[in-house]
């Protein structure tokens, strides 16, 4: 199946969504996005890190070094209260946007 690039800004929302489940490291997050999108969405993996650092700077997430199952050191990110709120807002506006776009497209088809 063809892999899709996704719109700018949506990356942050996806990261927030993934972290809403449980704390995770960068690699884990990219894996999750890949899996949850049924292997449709692909991120240039490196570009997730600037996004993570930016979000941490804004206070949406916090980070802490921890151990993986294989006992390797990794940096885990966790959602803050602010981040949770942000996820809600982003989600709502995304819904509104896609509904609106969907309506327009449906109107064109009919």
């Amino acid at each position: 199946m063809k892999k899709l690039d996704f719109p700018q800004g949506a990356l942050e929302m996806l990261i927030l969504r993934v972290l809403a489940g449980q704390p995770n490291h960068g690699f884990g997050i990219s894996q999750q996005i890949h899996l949850l999108s049924k292997e449709v969405l692909s991120v240039e993996e490196g570009s997730m890190y600037p996004a993570l650092h930016r979000m941490q700077e804004r206070g949406w997430i916090v980070s802490e070094w921890g151990k993986t199952e294989n006992n390797r050191r990794a940096k885990y990110y966790e959602l803050t209260e602010v981040g949770k709120q942000r996820l809600g807002e982003e989600h709502a506006s995304w819904e509104a946007l896609t509904t609106a776009i969907g309506d327009v497209m449906a109107g064109l088809q009919s």
Partner: peptide, 12 residues
């Protein structure tokens, strides 16, 4: 920063 990225590449 280097360690974090290295971890990613190693895992992959």
């Amino acid at each position: 920063l280097a360690e974090e990225m290295q971890f990613h590449i190693d895992q992959q």
